[in-house]
Design a binder for these strands. Structure first.
Lengths: 209, 209
DNA sequence: GTCTATATTCAGATAGAC
DNA sequence: GTCTATCTGAATATAGAC
């Protein structure tokens, strides 16, 4: 029962290598050989730690999915000012994507292949309540005549689009717009402020401030 | 030399079946057997028309890529009013995606795997000029004090995000928001107007109209 | 052009030594 | 735990009859 806690060995290297390979190529495109190479081991050892490709994939996928939802529920509940909620939400979401730029494309591709399977795996029949909290705050702001009438789904779609899309389109955008890696990073850093301002300008009423 | 023009046969059925299979599963995830089944033929005939999987894929990919760029350049050049350009652009882009809802995810996934290969295949060193035209119009509107200061790249990113992202996130959004297929279609139809209004509200100056 | 049957390739998985 | 060598199976590709 003397469990050694030190995990900074082959297993962790494998997981990191596998994450990168799956994120870039998708499940079918990923190669166990490539993962082994990147982790500095061979295929046999890969199967020693993870019985098969699917087991390894599932571990990566579940962990990744959890990281896709920002922990902003408490912030939404506690913050009174809707515009501040927007600012913090955008900031949190873009930061999350900066930490894992190829996460959203990976998730969306895998979900697209078989959405039912994925959601059975992930949601244990529990719906995320974060959006419900956000809807309540939008309703309040709308009743207080702070913001123009807009359907909640449309607003959320707009906000999430502007935060996430650039990471999905990154390789294409970089070429079409001649962006270097650094240009892209700077753009996304700037975007934390820009998107929030843009959203607020779009929905605020013309009341004297 | 008597070429028969009638193409409504096996070859066209194959192309349509292949498009659907590649769009849903990606290159590696797609199965030649599945394509043959969907086209109502067998694998041998598939190889009779297209020598191998890659040939078939390339045909699909190149045609799809061309369909991803809306033909709005002429409109942008001729239209004076920047807000009208926005309305028409959004309308055109969302309509394009409605006709091929799973096109963007397919493209982005394939590009992500190997962007260099893809862009060598597609662009013969020719940059799309549509964005340059749009930038000129934005500059004019900005100098005329019609719109607030905003970087072109940020504006374009915002506009394209809101048009395209919903189709990328469709399977996830449908489940998180409890949207039926019809709900989604209605939402996107409504969005043609909503996104244009949203963009214009976000950037227009507070001049008396 | 279309089929059945067969060959080839290659990635995932296992056996077994150390 | 880590390796080399080998096996298996699935998916692509071909041969050849009709």
């Amino acid at each position: 029962m003397a469990v050694h806690v030190d995990e900074s060995h082959a297993r962790t290297r494998i997981l990191e290598a596998a994450r990168q390979e799956f994120f870039k190529k998708g499940y079918e495109g990923a190669r166990m050989q490539a993962i082994a190479d990147a982790a500095g081991i061979n295929k046999a050892l890969l199967h020693y730690y993870f019985n098969n490709k699917e087991t390894l994939f599932n571990e990566i996928f579940e962990a990744s999915f959890r990281k896709f939802i920002p922990h902003v529920e408490e912030m939404i509940v506690n913050e009174k000012d809707f515009f501040t909620i927007i600012r913090k939400f955008v900031q949190a979401y873009i930061s999350l994507m900066q930490a894992q730029p190829s996460l959203p494309l990976f998730l969306f591709h895998e979900i697209n292949k078989d959405a039912d399977r994925v959601f059975k795996l992930i949601f244990n029949n529990e719906q995320p309540t974060m959006l419900l909290q956000l809807k309540q705050k939008l309703d309040i702001a709308q009743k207080g005549n702070q913001i123009k009438p807009i359907r909640f789904e449309q607003f959320v779609m707009n906000m999430m689009s502007m935060c996430i899309f650039p990471f999905l389109a990154k390789p294409m955008m970089q070429r079409v717009m001649n962006f270097s890696e650094q240009d892209f990073d700077e753009m996304m850093e700037h975007r934390k402020q820009q998107v929030a301002d843009f959203l607020i300008d779009a929905i605020k009423t013309n009341n004297i401030q």
